[in-house]
Structures are given as C-alpha cells and as structure tokens.
Design a protein around this nucleic acid. Sequence first.
DNA 1: GCCAACGTTGGC
DNA 2: GCCAACGTTGGC
Length: 152
Amino acid sequence: MSAPRRWLMKSEPDVFSIDDLARLETGGWDGVRNYQARNFMRDMAVGDKVLFYHSNAAPSGVAGTAEVCRAAYPDPTQFDRGDAHYDPKASPEEPIWLQVDLRFVSKFARLVPLDELRGMPALADMMLFHRPRLSVQPVSAAHWRIIAKRGG
DNA sequence: GCCAACGTTGGC
DNA sequence: GCCAACGTTGGC
C-alpha cells in the first residue's frame, strides 16, 4: 500500500467547522459541485490525510486535520429535489457527484490564517494561492509539515 | 468550439 | 455585504 496522500479541503465554518467534525467524529463531505474537486475526491483512499480549511471566515485559514474514513461514493444530495445541491442531470444509475467521509484527527492549538500562509515563501506554490476557488486540492508532504508545525 | 452572460466562491 | 476572480452554461 502506498503512503497516504495529503489534501486540503475547504468548509465554511458557519456551515460545518472543525468543531462540528470533532463533535460528530465523522462527517460526509457532500455538496461539492466542481469537476476538478470531484476528481480529487475520486483519487482519495481511506487513510489519506486532510487539512481542514475554514473559508469565508474571520479569519480564514487551516483549523485542524482529518483523515479519509470512506472513499468516494455518490453524493446523495444530487438526487434530492429538496436539497440546495440537487442536480437534475444526475440519477442513481448515472451519478455525477461524489463525496468522501472524514474522521476528525486534530484541532490546531491555533488557526493558521491565510495571510500567514501567504507570507511564507516555502508555501508559494501551494494550489491554495493559484486556484483560489478550488475547494479540494492536493498538498505536498513538505507543505503539510510546515503548516502543521504552525498550527501547534 | 467560441465566447458572452451568468452564477458562485471566498477574501476582505 | 461587496465585488473580483473564475468556473459553467448556452446561444450561435
């Protein structure tokens, strides 16, 4: 088995925060409606490590870590007419959107804010800065170590 | 297959 | 809440 890969996944803390994941222990990452983000989730395996990023927050930044506890499967909200993420083009026979489930691992002693990440030359090629709207993205082991150290 | 219009993300 | 960036849709 290959070493677990590393990812960054964004969530608005008003909707679902690191504290919510800590309380629930596991959570489903549904509602992703972007093809590139979906494809990254398709590549995930159980045990992959995830930086939990708070977006649209004050401040935004990396709040903790999680791990993939269930590999990609069809996101049921795409079939639910009453759901904000309903997709009329999807069907149970031909699903379009995927989700993974995450298990809480750690909450950082301090949130590592975006502007701090941005100020670090060692992180300059993070996808976070070059694909600012991508909500699921890979993270190198080196970048992971730097960020986790900052989080305490 | 181009590209304008539109909708959404996410920093601030 | 504003709005820039950018992904997606749809007319042609």
